[in-house]
Design a protein around this nucleic acid. Structure first.
Length: 189
DNA sequence: CCCTGATTCGC
DNA sequence: GCGAATCAGG
């Protein structure tokens, strides 16, 4: 497989969406995550902007004997031939949440707006948009099993994002799923 | 062990 | 330019 325009664009798109290199590689097919990462670097779009967690700017020691000449006069005109709209289904933003709870049936973990760090909640809402919206059958040991929406309606799916090693949920959902049941450790950052 | 991205370097 | 191997971390 080679990096055709289309493939590169999908790569850019997904990388921009915060998808992991492995996910992108899986999607593209025929390439490994290494290939994706390598390409990402060559394209010069290594750092992503997720608005959360990039607070780590390290003064990388670069001996660089050669005076790098950075030139970026490209507003990127971009030639869009024809995008066959890669998005199969387009769910308009946030699906209205039912307030009515169907009697019986084990309710999803949905923490009842407890005392969860607003930080974590915000994060959840944030990633909920990026959720892969998987169905029950699509879940694996590596996909976040956090349920979203009302199981009794169509507005129901599972997060599906990569789980936090070992846990059943992705990082964001782990944050609201496993809360301080008693004491709260000092949280400084 | 699972995963993540970053870097190197032979091709 | 490419990407496997490797590195460094979570």
């Amino acid at each position: 497989m080679s990096w055709t325009d289309e493939r590169v664009e999908l790569l850019k798109k997904m990388w921009g969406e915060g998808q992991s290199a492995s996910q992108i590689a899986k999607e593209l097919g025929g390439v490994t995550r290494n290939a994706v990462i390598g390409k990402v670097h060559r394209l010069g779009l290594s750092n992503r902007a997720t608005g959360a967690s990039p607070a780590k700017a390290e003064p990388k020691e670069k001996p660089a004997p050669a005076p790098k000449a950075e030139a970026k006069p490209k507003p990127a005109p971009k030639t869009e031939p024809a995008r066959p709209a890669p998005a199969p289904e387009a769910k308009p933003a946030i699906p209205a949440r039912r307030q009515i709870i169907p009697a019986g049936q084990p309710l999803p973990p949905q923490p009842s707006a407890n005392e969860i760090s607003p930080e974590a909640l915000a994060k959840v809402n944030e990633i909920e948009k990026k959720a892969k919206k998987l169905t029950l059958m699509e879940l694996t040991e590596k996909t976040c099993k956090w349920p979203v929406g009302d199981p009794a309606t169509e507005d129901f799916w599972f997060c599906g994002l990569p789980v936090e090693a070992g846990k059943p949920y992705c990082e964001a959902h782990v944050g609201v799923a496993f809360q301080p049941m008693s004491s709260r450790r000092d949280r400084r950052r």
